[in-house]
Design a protein around this nucleic acid. Structure first.
Lengths: 342, 342
DNA sequence: TTGAAAGCGCTAACAA
DNA sequence: TTGTTAGCGCTTTCAA
């Protein structure tokens, strides 16, 4: 052991290679090694070679915590989803993560659907990491949450919805428009007596309201609403159809708040010998990958979730790099996918 | 502006509140504020109150990058999944994330399924964050990858599989056992002519091998294998049944490498007027939440993915806290769920 | 129980 | 183009 080492007090760190080690080995200053690694076209070929050499020989991997601390740029983006089990959002997370990764960013994932108290903690733990951006599934409604996010100064993008008062950036679509357009779509097919099967979900509730309104405006009977609570399962869809048959047997079209519920309705219809779409038309929401290949193929509402993820990543990266993002609000719209079930 | 501020050079930092600000406001030393926040039972009630007060008044959120750098403990766990779209794994990620969060850890999520070159980069970017642990979906087969992980010294847990040579910790089950047991199960039902519909997947391939072997040992005809490549869609399942009917019409049982493929097979069977399970028995793999409520209800292999996630989180946390983890390998097994389709 | 000093490993700012 | 210096915001170590 050299006396330089001995004269120092015991090292605290993790024992991993540091930039200093690399620099020493290359015979250059640490900052030069840093530049060779991070901005290679700002150094001479000679220096670059020496440093690359030292990196290869040591297996050095830069410590991004230290880099982030020094530069105030963490290269981390946080995303909040209600739950990773809700597959509608996973296409968005997939493209978000993928776009971020190509831009040199990493994704931290938080789940909010457990409880309001945990959402509060989640936000705190996210802000504590000083991410360069925050992706939110949905709109942040809680006043405290909005205040905290605003106070943190971290760029935020809210998604999967529209609001006149976004915290910062916004990429979504109008749930009210969907409710209305689906109502028109079904009424144009000659349907007159409607049911709506919905999970407890604030965005779905807005689709319901607009759907009811459009139906009422045309003078049709009131929409029969079945609320399945928190359960978004296929089974709830099956049970809902039974409820409908029992309490409102004259229904001729059912709009569901998710594809899975719609699949449940169709499954039970088959069991009960009810023809879809002849006797009852069924519409889903989400267009999860396989519903178009079922029999009958499910008619549904498609959201371009992949696009939401990609655009959100781009927004966040641009902001992190100090660019001015414009526009700051994008309506990605939706499309009604007409297949066999309606 | 006070002259204290003027005398300093321009601040570099992010401008957010720091521990120093809080300490100054509370009239204590920074380290005391730190202790009040992190280990409140090591300080006097008086100090605690003063600091809590200052925190509330400033909205201070500790900077975990700085904390992590100083303590060499990031409180970050990285997880690698092939893709967030593969819903079998999402239950595991859900419970992993949830357990980690309750332990004060955060999850970074990386997707590996894009390309080998990206997997290399992914690993590098993960190690650069100095996570306290790494969760891997599957076994790390690449020699380079294993070496890097080992060299990093970061605790690793490999999952969803077994291997005699894990990098570190291991939580999984035997794919060969599944192939064999499902073969026995179907043969016990009197089935004799088998097909296997499989996606390109190294773990599925091991189920196929064991399945073939068990069938051959009983003297039944060779298993007819349909490989659908990278496509795990329901549609591929439908096409596979058509292939089977064309090329091996005498088949009376089909084991699929995923529930979605099995659903496709069942869908096409219905279209073709083939009775399941009477003419053909169908088995899936994964037991994704809704397949038990379809008609016919899908018989399948269930993996307790939630348990894998929970145990993995516990392993990783224990190791991060310096505890000795024992055992370091867990076989969570599997169960054959007998429903209507087989 | 509290505090002073010294870093963790890196980069911004400035200088040569 | 390269280097020196001084932190980033926190925690460890050591001392009172």
């Amino acid at each position: 052991m050299s006396d330089k080492e001995i004269s120092k007090r015991a090292r605290r760190g993790s024992g991993a290679m540091t930039l200093r080690d690399v620099a020493k080995l290359a015979g250059v200053a640490p900052i030069s090694a840093s530049r060779a690694i991070n901005t290679p076209d700002q150094v001479s070929p000679d220096l670059l070679r020496k440093v690359q050499d030292a990196v290869n020989r040591t297996g050095y991997v830069p410590n991004r915590m230290a880099g982030g601390l020094a530069s105030s740029r963490s290269k981390l983006i946080a995303a909040v989803v209600p739950s990773t089990l809700m597959s509608v959002f996973m296409g968005t997370i997939e493209s978000l993560n993928s776009t971020l990764f190509d831009g040199g960013y990493q994704l931290m994932l938080g789940q909010s659907a457990y409880s309001a108290s945990r959402e509060e903690l989640l936000l705190e733990s996210i802000i504590g990491r000083r991410p360069d951006g925050i992706f939110l599934t949905g709109i942040m409604h809680s006043k405290r949450g909005r205040t905290r996010l605003l106070a943190s100064g971290i760029p935020v993008v809210e998604t999967w919805d529209l609001t006149p008062t976004p915290i910062d950036m916004l990429i979504g679509f109008s749930h009210a428009d969907i409710g209305r357009e689906v109502a028109y779509f079904l009424m144009n097919k000659g349907r007159k007596r409607f049911a709506f099967v919905t999970a407890d979900d604030e965005r779905a509730a807005r689709r319901v309201s607009a759907f009811k309104l459009a139906v009422a405006e045309k003078g049709h009977p009131e929409v029969f609403v079945v609320n399945v609570g928190a359960s978004r399962s296929l089974k709830s869809g099956r049970e809902s159809l039974l409820t409908i048959l029992r309490q409102a047997p004259q229904i001729d079209a059912i709009f569901c708040s998710s594809d899975l519920l719609a699949l449940g309705v169709m499954t039970e219809a088959r069991v009960q010998g009810i023809s879809v779409p002849h006797s009852i038309a069924v519409m889903g929401f989400g267009d999860i990958p396989f519903v178009g290949d079922m029999v009958p193929a499910l008619s549904t509402v498609r959201i371009n979730g992949e696009k939401i993820g990609r655009l959100a990543a781009q927004f966040l990266i641009d902001r992190a790099e100090g660019k001015i993002v414009t526009p700051r609000e994008i309506d990605v719209g939706f499309s009604i996918v007409e297949r066999d079930s309606a």
